[in-house]
């Protein structure tokens, strides 16, 4: 089926969604993940992953910014003067980040307050500049948009995985829903279930070094399963 599609969508259909387009999205989620393989955008991955809700909001924000910055840059790619390329790209990113921040502040003020400077730091998230340089400056807008969505998703997925581990291990809750802990507020009250009485929330998971360890373990697992990704150095 894919073979039939390929010639059709070459130039005529701008918003087609075939096999190549699907790969643009699925690749960054696994084999070409921005965090674990390309090592981009780690900074904010650590600070915002103490709670799943924060990580989700951050993931969505980054996805929107990557997608639209890719799209706009790709639209403008033939008009951007080479000498001021960097600044133009940064302004596009900073503009979108400001828009996202203003909207978040209106939609969910407490989360905005919690994320504080880390929303602004999306600007220097290397994923954005990396994708603009590597993809959007050389490809069509629609494909760039999908590439942005894919990379944003790949980033968000890792963020949420880290946050799930950290919140569950550190606070015994997920999305603020209390699951396991030593009081009656939790769904699994470890004080009452005898075989769980040894369990205590591990505060280390909430501290930022824990995020480093979790990313390291994710990399470890991923590279053991896919030896192609192993560093030669």
């Amino acid at each position: 089926m894919a073979e039939v599609q390929v010639p059709v969508k070459s130039e005529s259909s701008v918003f087609s969604f075939g096999k190549t387009e699907r790969r643009l999205i699925t690749d960054p989620i696994s084999d070409n993940n921005p965090i674990t393989v390309q090592v981009l955008g780690v900074c904010s991955a650590l600070a915002v992953t103490t709670l799943v809700s924060k990580a989700l909001v951050m993931g969505i924000a980054v996805m929107l910014v990557t997608a639209f910055s890719n799209y706009f840059t790709s639209l403008l790619r033939e008009y951007i003067p080479k000498s001021v390329r960097m600044i133009v790209q940064l302004v596009i990113i900073a503009f979108l980040v400001t828009v996202v921040e203003l909207i978040l502040k209106a939609v969910n003020y407490p989360i905005w307050k919690e994320l504080s400077v880390f929303i602004g730091l999306i600007i220097t998230n290397c994923i954005l500049m990396g994708r603009l340089e590597a993809y959007a400056m050389a490809n069509k807008p629609w494909k760039s948009f999908l590439d942005g969505i894919g990379n944003g998703l790949g980033y968000g997925v890792i963020l949420v995985i880290i946050a799930v581990i950290r919140e569950l291990a550190g606070k015994g809750s997920l999305m603020d829903y209390k699951i396991i802990g030593p009081t009656s507020e939790y769904a699994l009250n470890t004080m009452e279930i005898s075989w769980l009485s040894w369990y205590a929330p591990n505060n280390l998971a909430i501290l930022s070094p824990a995020a480093m360890f979790i990313i390291a373990i994710i990399i470890w697992v991923q590279r053991s399963r896919n030896p192609k990704l192993v560093d030669i150095s």
């Binding site: 995020a211 480093m212 360890f213 390291a216 990399i219 470890w220 590279r223 030896p227």
Partner: peptide, 23 residues
């Protein structure tokens, strides 16, 4: 170092440990 941890993986572990030391 186990091959899968070489380079990047170890760098993450190290930074985490250094972070703990700095705490």
């Amino acid at each position: 170092v186990p091959p899968a941890l070489r380079g990047l993986g170890m760098a993450f572990f190290l930074t985490g440990l250094m972070g703990m030391a700095f705490m």
